[in-house]
């Protein structure tokens, strides 16, 4: 079932740890698509790396985890703790100016634990993929 899209501030995270800009598709309890516009203003680009800025891969994982949590917790305040990362791959560096599209769908539920299959794309190319396990309470 497609529901009206909640604003991104439904996330329990706040600055500087919101890794998503917008929800563009959400099927309650099934899947989500979110975007993150990666800009040179991000603080981490000053150090990663000064001459060749690229988004730290661990923050791509964080973006995947935040998007995945929203599949379950988009109606009421919900905390999702990252419990596992499996088979993570980072194929292409994400750089300032990229629009990161995060697609996540549920593989398995066993509340409070949930497994998600997640891909991150830039210009329709997969830049990263992983299985994310969240403990959602």
């Amino acid at each position: 079932m497609t529901v009206s899209l909640p604003p991104i501030n439904i996330l329990p995270h706040s600055y500087p740890f919101v890794m998503l800009d917008k929800i563009v598709k959400l099927e309650q309890g099934l899947c989500i698509v979110c975007i993150k516009n990666v800009t040179i203003n991000e603080k981490y680009f000053t150090g990663h790396f000064k001459e060749n800025p690229s988004m730290p891969e661990i923050l791509i994982i964080e973006a995947m985890a935040q998007a995945s949590g929203l599949i379950i917790g988009n109606r009421k305040p919900t905390l999702a703790y990252l419990s596992g990362i499996k088979d993570a791959k980072f194929k292409i560096p994400v750089v300032p100016g990229d629009q990161l599209v995060i697609r996540s769908s549920i593989i398995q539920t066993l509340p409070p634990l949930y497994v998600f299959g997640v891909t991150a794309l830039v210009k329709e190319k997969v830049v990263s993929e992983a299985e994310i396990i969240l403990n959602i309470i």
Binding site: K86, I107, Q108, T109, L110, P111, L113, I133
Partner: peptide, 26 residues
């Protein structure tokens, strides 16, 4: 631990086509 169980649930579904969808059953 509980995360191992979750992984087993995924693996059992893949390997044997058997679903374990709730914690009481698990």
């Amino acid at each position: 631990d509980s995360i191992d169980v979750l992984e087993l649930v995924v693996a059992i579904k893949k390997e044997f086509g058997v679903e374990i969808a709730d914690r009481q059953t698990a």
